[in-house]
Design a protein around this nucleic acid. Structure first.
Length: 302
DNA sequence: GCGTCCAGGTCTACC
DNA sequence: GGTAGACCTGGACGC
């Protein structure tokens, strides 16, 4: 089944794909030749499907494949998921206003950057974020791929990300032995159980009406989510007031702003402080600017 | 081939 | 409120 989705004025698909590593992390995949982003998901929360998304003219073309025939409501759910993961409804005007007149940041508006790709669910983003901590990107990719392959629904090679229920059924030992997530294993079990049992309404984190302090408090109540993971998860729920510094960012900041000399986190915080509630996004875009200047092949997988 | 280091950090225990 | 030390994994690096 094919359908199209209108995009905001000036929208650049490429800037979303390059926004961070999620575009090459299962169940996402990006084909550089056809510039098509594919995503395996559960249509209507139930039917395994793959959505292939490409930018054609003034709209997105979405091609949905599934084994069974999808109902209208399930197709509608896929459309809504595509809008959400590509952040089509994000209002970036305040970001562009905040960086207006800054020579080193003018590119952000020019390239319509600032839409950070996210998963269909907060749960998926949170699990993935925990899997990025204290390890290489290669290891993150392997852990997440194994989660999809072993616990996700769908045809082999095109499985969706597992549901909280599917993850909650497994033991810490399973995660250690099969997922090879090491000391993160108890964190993943605990998070999945809290969400599956309805004790943590994690999807509400994306609700603009939810108070940011409450959201931050709930994020930090999850074992495995510290300052880095919190800062970056906040960006994926549309709150940009925290940096979420990691070792890559420290190195990149030093390279771009200190001629390679290392600085403390406090200096990095000060550098972006003027951008207030947008500083987390300005920080991330500033550090990832080199990605936007190269062909896909040189930077993907990120 | 083997040992060490560390990567898109966090938690706990102890000052 | 600040800071060692421990923690899984696997790729890179030096020897």
């Amino acid at each position: 089944v094919n359908f199209t989705i209108d995009v905001p004025a000036g929208f650049r698909f490429r800037s979303v794909v390059l926004s961070h590593g999620w575009s090459s992390l299962p169940p996402f995949a990006f084909d550089t030749a056809s510039e098509t982003l594919s995503l395996n998901l559960l249509a209507g929360g139930r039917v395994p499907a793959t959505a292939a998304i490409a930018h054609r003219g003034r709209s997105l073309s979405v091609s949905v494949r599934s084994r069974g025939r999808l109902r209208e409501a399930e197709l509608g759910h896929v459309g809504a998921a595509v809008r959400s993961v590509l952040r089509l409804d994000a209002d970036l005007a305040p970001l562009y206003k905040a960086v207006a007149g800054r020579p080193g940041l003018a590119w952000i508006r020019k390239l319509a950057a600032g839409r950070l790709l996210r998963a269909p669910s907060v749960f998926e983003d949170a699990v993935k974020m925990i899997c990025t901590t204290n390890c290489s990107w290669a290891l993150t990719t392997m852990m997440v791929k194994r989660l999809c392959d072993l616990l996700g629904s769908g045809p082999a090679g095109a499985k969706a990300f597992p549901t909280p229920g599917a993850m909650a059924e497994r033991t810490e030992s399973f995660y250690r032995k099969e997922i090879r997530s090491g000391y993160r294993s108890p964190f993943l079990v605990e998070l999945a159980r809290r969400v599956a049992e309805g004790k943590l309404d994690i999807e509400r984190w994306r609700d603009p009406a939810a108070g940011v302090e409450r959201v931050r408090e709930e994020m930090r109540s999850v074992n495995g989510i510290g300052p880095y993971a919190e800062g970056n998860l906040l960006k994926l729920v549309g709150r940009y007031g925290e940096l979420g510094i990691d070792s890559w960012c420290r190195k990149q900041f030093a390279a771009l702003h200190r001629n390679g000399r290392k600085t403390g986190d406090a200096a990095i915080e000060r550098h972006y402080a003027e951008f207030g509630e947008w500083k987390g996004l300005v920080f991330w875009l500033d550090l990832t600017r080199p990605w936007y200047e190269k062909p896909y092949e040189e930077i993907l997988p990120l």
